[in-house]
Design a protein around this nucleic acid. Structure first.
Length: 548
DNA sequence: CTTAGGG
DNA sequence: CCCTAAG
């Protein structure tokens, strides 16, 4: 009942606003969802009656009903149909205008009005309404000529492509006035064949589908015409209308919406990269822009997923992705820069690593992808480390790659590509410690003291941007263990290098040990230790290098 | 942010 | 190597 009232009110407010309606109807049609295919399987008018009688979608012959849509919306559609029908019936009775059915429903279309060559331009509004009624089996109170014209034309010709110019409908085909021969759209009426995209099958024989479309559009039209101040428009009304509008659009799956949100999220991320720290709060919920049609996902890999439920086929974008959680903020940046070869501060990523960031940047905690090919045998190379000073230089690094302008090592990505990106997504690609690095570490500890990892990193590991202070610390810890372990097993087998991928020469280990002892004795007074440490270091280092 | 320590 | 608690 409520629907009826609302509809009537809507009708009342439907003053003719030809321009708007035209625009509206045209728009709603021309921008019809691209992924939507309406199957043409409805057999006839009788379906409508039964459909309306039951108000349920499960009519045997209702194959054309968009049963793939959500149930809630289906109900709304059904109610809408019923409403329309009763409305039409009421009006029929009131105006005693035309034929037939009382039981529930709609008057039978009077096809006589549609026979022969139809020139809708010559129709009056009343005639157009009549034609509409004949076409769609229901009455309309829309007084917009253009709207009616287009509606009818679409209904008769099965086509959503109705020219703006004058035309004549002949044999279910639209014929332009100017060019009589030019057919805009082949007819498929009654053929039962499926339609192409963009085509809403709307012949008089396929009323249901058409009606749904027509209703929604009409409601849209009504909505457009309603004055904003109209108190009649309850939210429900708008909701209904929106529902109908939505109906015509591609059904957004949950996933689709999700993807869209993420997409927008990504856009935000890209935009606000500089201040990406607050990214968590920049999330912007998706607007209903999905209705517009295809959305462009610039950085996504697409495939299409077909959902072919009864009578409907939706083509929904289906995004392949490894993870469903919020995209890492670095990810977007990564994709953005991927092509350019720059790779700023990228954490371990699902994607293929490119090049290591050169940013020895102070602030950036460069946990970049280091896709260096795992170097295996640097042992012998490392053996010829220079004495004491830190210029064992990048010999080992040359193995990894070349140095960039800043002297940072740039891994040569010969074959990189971790086989399974997702397995250790988060994990920094393991980078074996070279002997050189170990040496530097030991020296650094000797020089600056254990525990001043940041300093060591900054001063001694300036060229090894991939080593974080924590790395140094960890490595030192491991070295200590190895050293102690080696110490304990000294006589036995000397395989005590479980903690390092690079064989650490015994001298270094003993050096480590001594350093550790030294520091232990000093009681961690590193601050003052610096100078003394240096001196002590010299001797130690001498010892170490002597062995080397 | 830096360290230390556990995992 | 990662994570986290603690300065």
């Amino acid at each position: 009942m409520r629907y009826l009232l609302q509809s009537e009110k809507a009708d009342d407010s439907r003053k003719s606003h030809a321009g708007i309606e035209e625009e509206m109807s045209g728009k709603s049609l021309n921008s019809s969802p691209k992924g939507m295919v309406v199957e043409d399987q409805i057999s006839g008018r009788s379906n409508i009656s039964s459909c309306i009688d039951k108000l349920q979608p499960e009519n045997a012959s209702n194959e054309g009903i968009p049963s793939s849509l959500e149930l809630s919306t289906i109900h709304i559609v059904e109610v809408g149909i019923a409403q329309r029908c009763s409305e039409a019936t009421n009006k029929d009775e009131a105006s005693s205008k035309s034929s037939v059915p009382k039981s529930c429903t709609i008057s039978l279309p009077d096809f006589s009005i549609l026979s022969g060559e139809i020139r809708l331009d010559n129709f009056s509004i009343r005639e157009l309404q009549e034609a509409f009624r004949a076409t769609f089996g229901r009455q309309t109170s829309v007084k917009d000529k253009l709207w009616l014209k287009r509606r009818i034309a679409m209904g008769l010709t099965n086509s959503s492509h109705v020219p703006d110019t004058d035309f004549v409908i002949k044999d279910n085909k639209i014929v332009l006035n100017e060019e009589e021969n030019r057919k805009l759209q082949p007819t498929q009426a009654g053929s039962g064949s499926s339609l192409d995209m963009h085509v809403i099958n709307a012949s008089p024989k396929n009323l249901e589908t058409t009606m749904i479309g027509a209703i929604s559009d009409e409601q849209v039209s009504a909505k457009r015409l309603k004055t904003p101040s109209s108190k009649d428009n309850s939210k429900d009304d708008y909701y209904q209308i929106e529902k109908f509008v939505v109906k015509r659009m591609r059904k957004p799956t949950k996933r689709y919406i999700e993807e869209l949100s993420e997409h927008e999220d990504m856009e935000c991320a890209v935009k606000s990269y500089s201040c990406s720290k607050n990214l968590e709060h920049v999330y912007s919920p998706s607007k209903s822009s999905w209705a517009i049609g295809d959305v462009d996902f610039p950085n996504r890999i697409f495939s299409a997923r077909y959902i072919p439920p009864a009578g409907f086929k939706f083509q929904v974008p289906f995004v392949l992705r490894a993870r469903r959680c919020r995209p890492r903020k670095d990810f977007s940046v990564f994709t953005k820069y991927q092509s350019s070869g720059l790779c700023p501060t990228v954490e371990a990523s699902t994607m293929t690593p490119v090049q290591e960031e050169s940013g020895s940047g102070s602030g950036s905690r460069s946990r970049e992808i280091s896709s260096v090919a795992v170097q295996s045998s640097i042992a012998e190379e490392g053996m010829k480390v220079d004495n004491g000073t830190f210029n064992c230089e990048e010999k080992t690094d040359v193995e990894h790659g070349k140095l960039d302008d800043h002297g940072n090592s740039f891994p040569v990505n010969t074959n990189t590509q971790p086989a399974e990106p997702k397995s250790s997504e988060r994990r920094k690609h393991h980078r074996a410690w070279t002997l050189c690095e170990v040496q530097k570490l030991v020296d650094g500890v000797a020089k600056y003291g254990a525990g001043r990892w940041s300093e060591i990193r900054r001063l001694a590991f300036a060229s090894y941007s991939y080593r974080t202070p924590v790395d140094l610390k960890d490595k030192w810890r491991n070295l200590l263990r190895a050293s102690l372990s080696q110490c304990s097993i000294e006589k036995g087998e000397r395989n005590s290098r479980k903690y390092t991928s690079v064989p650490i020469p015994t001298p270094i280990l003993s050096q480590v040990r001594e350093l550790a002892e030294l520091h232990a004795q000093a009681g961690l007074k590193l601050g003052t230790k610096k100078s003394t440490d240096n001196e002590g270091r010299a001797g130690v280092h001498e010892e170490g290098s002597g062995f080397l």
